[in-house]
């Protein structure tokens, strides 16, 4: 039987990494760690005393491979003294626009890097390219989320020296990224005013897992008849643990609070 081993370098079909600025030079760093599960085997005897079946209590996560790689990523990022943020939202909620402005303003004083995921094109990677910020585009092919293995490989393609904040812009999708730990220090979920106040109630798993919820495009809330207080209440019901920041990448409202959050996170690492 063909039984491939579980290895780190095993790209998903259609998966590509495209380092746009600040590509790493020299040898890539190997991430390593133990791959083991606590196993207790029990033998079940059949009626005539013969062993009919071996029952093994494995108790391993379904996403063992992803979880192990995510923990390696977390250790790797911590060791480098940088904070990784996993930005998740529906397509079009304003992740890239927020990061463009964040790199131009906050990113001048605090070195940032970006890994950005999409199914196809390097449009976002090119939009985010700055001389002062390493950026790599991950195109996933058909895969609807980023996983920890993609992040491990893509992070090694970047020169992360001096970087304090690594933004991981996930594939625009409010469902699947919820299950995949990337090794981030904070999960940031964006909800834009164009989406409706009840999004947190309709897509609860991703909001449940949020450390921070950004309510974006608040400058057009009134025009859209978007009730901010209702949206905030819905977020609080699903995710009472999450901090909420209301902002607009266009007018700049709320950005100071977002930068304060990033500054505090960078100071912790």
């Amino acid at each position: 039987m063909n039984t491939p081993a579980l290895t780190l370098a095993e790209p998903t079909p259609g998966f590509r990494i495209n380092a746009l600025t600040g590509a790493a030079t020299g040898s890539s760093r190997a991430l390593s760690g133990p791959l083991s599960a606590e196993i207790t085997a029990a033998l079940h005897a059949s009626g005539n005393g013969e062993v009919a079946v071996r029952s093994v209590d494995v108790n391993i996560p379904l996403l063992e491979k992803n979880d192990i790689l995510a923990e390696r990523n977390r250790g790797y990022f911590l060791g480098r003294g940088l904070a990784a943020l996993n930005l998740v939202s529906s397509p079009g909620a304003g992740k890239t626009t927020l990061l463009e402005r964040t790199l131009d303003e906050f990113g001048r004083a605090t070195k940032c890097a970006v890994l950005v995921g999409d199914l196809e094109t390097d449009n976002d990677g090119r939009r985010l390219s700055r001389p002062h910020a390493p950026v790599a585009q991950i195109t996933t092919g058909t895969v609807c989320h980023l996983d920890a293995g993609m992040i491990a490989r893509a992070a090694q393609s970047l020169d992360l020296d001096g970087v304090k904040i690594l933004f991981i812009e996930n594939v625009g999708n409010l469902v699947c990224p919820a299950s995949f730990d990337l090794g981030e220090q904070a999960r940031v979920v964006l909800l834009s005013t164009t989406e409706g106040e009840d999004k947190p109630l309709k897509y609860p798993p991703i909001f449940k897992s949020a450390d921070l919820v950004l309510l974006t495009k608040v400058d057009v809330a009134d025009v859209l008849g978007f009730k901010r207080d209702v949206a905030v209440e819905n977020i609080r019901r699903i995710a009472p643990q999450a901090r909420i920041i209301q902002l607009s990448s266009r007018t700049g409202e709320g950005l100071a609070e977002w930068y304060d959050y990033l500054r505090a996170l960078a100071a912790q690492t």
Partner: peptide, 23 residues
């Protein structure tokens, strides 16, 4: 009536047990 974020069980996503044919 407070909202909680402290989930104690319900997030499990595990392979609990496997049975293999006898050797």
């Amino acid at each position: 009536r407070a909202f909680s974020s402290d989930i104690r069980t319900g997030r499990e996503l595990d392979i609990a047990r496997l049975e293999f044919p006898a050797l």
